[in-house]
Design a protein around this nucleic acid. Structure first.
Length: 223
DNA sequence: TTCCAGCAAA
DNA sequence: TTTGCAGGAA
């Protein structure tokens, strides 16, 4: 019975938490294009696009993008103006340059293959902890913790922690998120967390706790 | 800690 | 019209 208990705070039955979450996640899985592939290149591209950008906004751009650049060598040969035109609707225009630099780096230092090691990924321009972890989890199924605005919100609510903008850099949050990752099916687990954040555990709108699969583990709303 | 930058939902 | 978004870099 894997109990999680840090600093004498709230403790949960981690095994039950994961079971409930993943059963729910299987049912409500959002089948985005970048989720039905294990190609690390495609997953990396998606993660870069999802950076501070809604999935619904990414969908049409991603589709068009991979039609033009189905693999990394076609992207490496891309014309700059065509690339920025495709990426334009996403905003954050510095993404174009970063993506070019990232691509060139993968070609130059890793022979055009997206590296599998965490440190190698994090050495790429535009790639830090979140994207490196996401690629490793979704492409190779490594049990990586994903620390982003969504997982911070869910885990923060479960453990009754105050959630601030800076919480995603808080080691305590990172520890809690890491200690709950499922080690048998990490990909399924992390997708379920992101889907739960989108469909139930809303940020601004009041979360729909009555429909939440992990309600019994969660301190949110408990008196 | 602050900026990023277009878009869609509210 | 305002608000907030699958983070990273400065």
């Amino acid at each position: 019975m894997a109990k999680i208990n840090l600093d004498g705070g709230h403790s949960i039955d981690g095994k039950l938490f994961r079971k409930n979450l993943m059963e729910w996640g299987q049912r409500y899985f959002r089948p985005f294009q970048w989720r039905v592939t294990e190609d690390p290149y495609l997953i990396l591209i998606a993660e870069v696009m999802l950076h501070r950008t809604r999935a619904s906004q990414v969908e049409p751009v991603y589709k068009k993008f991979i039609e033009h650049y189905p693999e990394i060598l076609t992207l490496a040969r891309a014309k700059k103006d065509e690339l920025s035109e495709i990426l334009y609707p996403l905003g954050l225009r510095w993404r174009t340059n970063l993506l070019s630099e990232m691509t060139a780096d993968i070609v130059a230092r890793f022979g055009g293959k997206v590296p599998e090691e965490k440190d190698d990924l994090m050495g790429l321009p535009g790639v830090s902890d979140y994207i490196a972890s996401a690629v490793r989890c979704f492409a190779w199924n490594y049990p990586e913790p994903l620390v982003d605005t969504n997982t911070v919100r869910i885990i923060g609510r479960v453990f009754g922690l105050e959630i601030k903008d800076s919480s995603r850099r808080n080691p305590r949050f990172r520890e809690l998120i890491a200690s709950n990752v499922d080690h048998y099916e990490p990909r399924k687990y992390n997708y379920a967390l992101l889907d739960l954040a989108d469909r139930v555990c809303f940020k601004v709108k009041e979360p729909e706790c009555n429909y939440c699969p992990i309600q019994e583990s969660c301190l949110y709303g408990v008196q």
